[in-house]
Design a binder for these strands. Structure first.
Length: 577
DNA sequence: ACGATGTTTAG
DNA sequence: TAAACATCG
């Protein structure tokens, strides 16, 4: 069973496993959580970088860019850009290094699909880098504990002078990188870690009291102001890496790396529908850019079934609204190809969010970033702001990823522990069509429409009253190809009302009215819930028991109104039944 | 990034 | 009479 993130940081005494027949993983004690928040690992990393004492080395055989599973691209990649500039300056070749770390993937509940997506992207990158005579060396290292020393001995084995990497903001990754920096420093290798994932780096924005933002709206205001004040800083494209001198291929160690293979699998992460995933989510920057172009430039097209055709070209549009332009009105429609579908690419860093914003601004001829015009583009840029926000929250309040609710007052909310209910939710057999369609979409596509995510998550946490942490783990672990710890955690805590959302606990979706809005004709439901494939009337949103029985579709597990009252009761008075 | 319910308004 | 709006949870 996978362990929860950061578990190894807690003393065994302070580990408290909630009494729960369903494993939600380890939950940090309030004291441990407070301690991590008081001095977040990101600050520690930045401090240890300041303390690096190594003098810039002037001889060696390589500058190394260590690519990780969240920055898998060559273009607009800050660490890679800096590494390349430095390599050129130092007259040494640039080497790209990647370590597959199965224990980390297990600890972070990565899905086999996500791991497979990583491998597929590595294959594409290997070829693209080779064209620049840059070797990509991919290895597997089983033990996450010894990974830092493994990385540093690799650096020594290629006689590296410098190490470049983009910062990963998860707690375990930050702690790993602190150790790597210290070890590299001791070994005389100069480490450089840079902010790259977000438009605005974590820690930069703060309230008038100097505290990190914990509410989205004011965060977004500041976020926009910062970007518009200095767009060149925040939206600039990082320089593309220069080619190595071709003589690198003669180097006894680096030369061999051109012919080494990217592993085809990672032990314990067998992806059973590799081929289908490769069709829906092709790897590589070209695929990501094509996805972006489709969103910005084409009008959505729907298949006969009503399911948005994930690979359909769409109609190139000049006058008609593109999908991006229609985003404001269409984004809550689960039955349409209404969203960009870029999340797998953004999560893996195959495309940068900077590039997304640049392309969106260019489309509407705007020079300022805004989120409130009626072009649709503004609403889409807001989604990128949410992405930044949740990583800022994770960086400033790392306990949210250690099993703690952002709002501690909800730490004692009583959760139901019915394993049959959880199993029904996980497999898409809750008897609520929109919820089941959502879950089954994730199980078949590795991806879920954003509105469907909210509806499905809200149903688990408020109707079934099952712990959000279980949903958080399972959604990443089982099916989803686009898992990002910060966004996933933020989304789940939003759904569970334990998060940063200042709206009170009574934000409870009515799954049936949500269904009518997200899927007015039932196309989405019929596509993913074949039992209901012959139901065309409005009853598809909530099939009468007789009809459900006849079609072999399950009856609802709970009555929504009763469940709603139960949730209201429990949140009003955490600890009560 | 809400829902249920009651009240007002447009037609 | 239904859609829009306001209020409260």
């Amino acid at each position: 069973m996978a362990k929860r993130s950061c578990s190894d940081s807690l003393s065994p005494r302070k580990k408290s496993r909630l009494e729960h027949p369903l494993s939600i993983g380890n939950v940090a004690s309030p004291e441990a959580a407070a301690a991590v928040d008081a001095d977040p690992p990101l600050k520690k990393l930045l401090r240890s970088l300041e303390n690096v004492t190594t003098a810039p080395p002037n001889s060696g055989d390589a500058v190394v860019y260590w690519m990780r599973m969240e920055d898998m691209r060559i273009y607009d990649n800050r660490a890679l850009a800096q590494a390349s500039v430095q390599a050129l300056k130092d007259h040494v070749p640039l080497l790209v290094f990647f370590v597959l770390s199965p224990q980390d993937y297990a600890a972070h509940d990565r899905s086999p699909r996500r791991v497979d997506f990583t491998l597929r992207n590595l294959c594409v990158l290997k070829g693209s880098l080779a064209k620049l005579d840059i070797p990509l060396h991919v290895t597997t290292h089983a033990s996450r504990r010894t990974l830092p020393s493994y990385v540093v001995s690799f650096l020594q084995s290629v006689n590296a002078t410098r190490l470049f990497a983009n910062i990963e903001y998860e707690v375990d990754e930050l702690r790993r990188d602190i150790t790597v920096c210290n070890l590299a420093n001791e070994a005389g290798i100069l480490p450089t870690l840079v902010h790259d994932k977000l438009i605005v780096e974590p820690g930069l924005l703060s309230t008038k009291q100097g505290k990190p933002y914990s509410v989205f709206s004011p965060f977004q205001r500041q976020w926009l102001a910062a970007i518009n004040k200095n767009p060149n800083q925040y939206l600039a494209e990082a320089v593309s890496p220069s080619a190595n001198p071709p003589t690198v291929r003669d180097h006894p160690i680096l030369g061999k790396m051109f012919s080494s293979e990217v592993p085809s699998r990672v032990e314990g992460f067998q992806c059973l529908d590799k081929h289908q995933m490769a069709v829906i989510w092709p790897a590589g920057m070209d695929a990501a850019r094509e996805m972006l172009r489709r969103f910005l430039r084409t009008k959505s097209r729907h298949t006969q079934s009503g399911l948005a055709d994930p690979l359909g070209e769409g109609a190139e549009t000049s006058e008609k609204k593109s999908r991006a332009m229609a985003y404001k009105d269409d984004r809550d429609r689960a039955d349409r190809d209404s969203t960009s579908r870029l999340s797998p690419y953004l999560a893996a860093g195959v495309i940068s969010s900077r590039e997304c914003i640049r392309a969106a601004l260019e489309l509407v001829g705007a020079t300022k970033v805004h989120t409130n015009r009626d072009t649709g583009i503004g609403m889409w840029i807001q989604e990128i702001a949410w992405r930044d926000f949740y990583t800022h929250v994770l960086a400033a309040f790392p306990r949210v990823s250690m099993g703690r609710p952002f709002q501690e007052k909800y730490a004692d909310v009583q959760w139901e522990t019915n394993p049959e209910h959880f199993e029904a939710w996980r497999t898409g057999r809750t008897g609520v069509p929109i919820v089941d369609a959502a879950i089954r979409q994730a199980n078949t596509m590795g991806w879920m429409h954003n509105r469907a995510r909210m509806v499905a998550a809200m149903y688990l946490t408020k109707d079934l009253m099952i712990d959000w942490r279980l949903g958080e783990r399972v959604s990443l672990h089982a099916a989803i190809i686009d898992g990002d710890l910060a966004s996933n955690n933020g989304g789940w805590q939003w759904s569970a009302s334990t998060g940063t959302d200042p709206q009170p606990y009574f934000r409870i979706f009515n799954p049936y009215s949500q269904s009518e809005k997200a899927d007015p004709n039932g196309d989405y439901i019929r596509t993913f819930v074949p039992e209901l494939g012959t139901v065309f009337g409005p009853e598809i949103h909530n099939p009468p028991a007789k009809l459900a029985d006849k079609l072999g579709y399950p009856r609802p597990l709970v009555d929504h109104k009763e469940a709603r009252d139960r949730a209201l009761r429990r949140y009003k008075n955490p600890g009560s039944k």
